[in-house]
Computed example of a mutant assay.
Amino acid sequence: MELRKRIPNLGEGDELLIYASAPVMAIVGAVEVSRVIKDAPDHLWTMVKDHAAVEQEFFDQYYQDHLTAYGIFLGHAQLYQKSCALQRLRVAWPGFVPPQNYRYVQVWNAPQHRLTEATTIFPTSRAGRFGLHTRD
C-alpha cells in the first residue's frame, strides 16, 4: 500500500520498478499495481487503515489541508535474481539520475529507438509504463 497526495499516472496492472538507494544503488525488483483509489482522506482511511502501515495520527497529518487522497494497492511483487546496478542503467541511458519520488519509463520495441537495448535490463518486465522515467 502506497499513500500519495498526488497520483502518478498509474492504473491497474501497471508495473513499478523498485530502485534501492545507497548503498545498493540498483533496480532490485518490480511490483504490480492492483488498484488505485481516489477519495476524501477520511473515506480513504476507512479503506486503507488495515493496509497502510501507518497510524491514523500520521495519516491525518500527512493529508492535512488536502481534499483528495490517493491509495495505491500493490499486488504481485518480484525480487529480481540479478539486480540492475546504477552503472548499467547509465550505460543504457546516459545521464540517468535515480528519481527522488517517481518517474516514468517506456520501453519501445522499435529497433531504431535508443531505449531498445534497455529491454535487456528488465527481461522479466512487461513493456509499458513503469515507475521510473527516462523518456525524452
Score class of each variant (00 low, 15 high):
residue 123 P to H: 05
residue 134 T to F: 04
residue 134 T to R: 01
residue 112 Q to D: 15
residue 103 R to Q: 15
residue 116 T to E: 04
residue 121 I to P: 00
residue 113 H to D: 14
residue 114 R to N: 09
residue 126 R to W: 02
residue 134 T to I: 05
residue 129 R to P: 00
residue 111 P to W: 03
residue 108 W to T: 04
residue 110 A to V: 11
residue 106 Q to N: 14
residue 122 F to A: 04
residue 108 W to A: 02
residue 107 V to S: 04
residue 120 T to F: 03
residue 134 T to A: 10
residue 104 Y to P: 00
residue 121 I to S: 03
residue 103 R to F: 03
residue 108 W to F: 08
residue 107 V to P: 01
residue 115 L to Y: 02
residue 128 G to C: 09
residue 117 E to L: 08
residue 103 R to C: 06
residue 105 V to L: 13
residue 133 H to T: 11
residue 128 G to Y: 08
residue 114 R to G: 08
residue 105 V to D: 00
residue 122 F to R: 02
residue 126 R to N: 12
residue 131 G to N: 04
residue 106 Q to C: 06
residue 131 G to P: 01
residue 128 G to R: 10
residue 133 H to Q: 12
residue 123 P to W: 04
residue 112 Q to N: 13
residue 123 P to G: 06
residue 117 E to D: 13
residue 116 T to K: 12
residue 122 F to C: 04
residue 134 T to K: 01
residue 125 S to V: 12
residue 122 F to D: 02
residue 110 A to Q: 13
residue 113 H to P: 01
residue 109 N to P: 08
residue 104 Y to M: 11
residue 115 L to A: 11
residue 127 A to T: 14
residue 131 G to R: 00
residue 104 Y to G: 11
residue 120 T to S: 15
residue 108 W to E: 04
residue 130 F to H: 12
residue 107 V to T: 07
residue 126 R to H: 11
residue 120 T to W: 02
residue 106 Q to A: 10
residue 123 P to N: 05
residue 111 P to H: 05
residue 134 T to V: 08
residue 116 T to C: 07
residue 117 E to A: 15
residue 117 E to C: 06
residue 133 H to I: 10
residue 117 E to N: 12
residue 105 V to T: 11
residue 106 Q to L: 10
residue 109 N to V: 10
residue 110 A to H: 14
residue 113 H to R: 13
residue 104 Y to C: 07
residue 109 N to F: 03
residue 124 T to Q: 15
residue 117 E to T: 11
residue 108 W to I: 02
residue 126 R to S: 13
residue 119 T to E: 06
residue 112 Q to G: 12
residue 131 G to S: 07
residue 118 A to T: 02
residue 126 R to A: 12
residue 127 A to H: 15
residue 132 L to K: 00
residue 128 G to Q: 13
residue 108 W to L: 09
residue 123 P to A: 11
residue 126 R to C: 09
residue 130 F to Y: 09
residue 118 A to W: 00
residue 104 Y to F: 14
residue 126 R to P: 07
residue 128 G to F: 08
residue 114 R to P: 06
residue 104 Y to L: 10
residue 129 R to T: 05
residue 116 T to W: 01
residue 108 W to H: 10
residue 131 G to Q: 01
residue 129 R to F: 04
residue 111 P to C: 08
residue 117 E to G: 13
residue 129 R to G: 01
residue 125 S to Q: 14
residue 107 V to F: 12
residue 112 Q to R: 13
residue 125 S to A: 15
residue 133 H to R: 10
residue 127 A to S: 14
residue 115 L to N: 09
residue 113 H to A: 13
residue 115 L to T: 07
residue 105 V to G: 04
residue 112 Q to F: 11
residue 103 R to D: 10
residue 104 Y to T: 13
residue 130 F to A: 04
residue 122 F to S: 02
residue 127 A to Q: 14
residue 121 I to M: 15
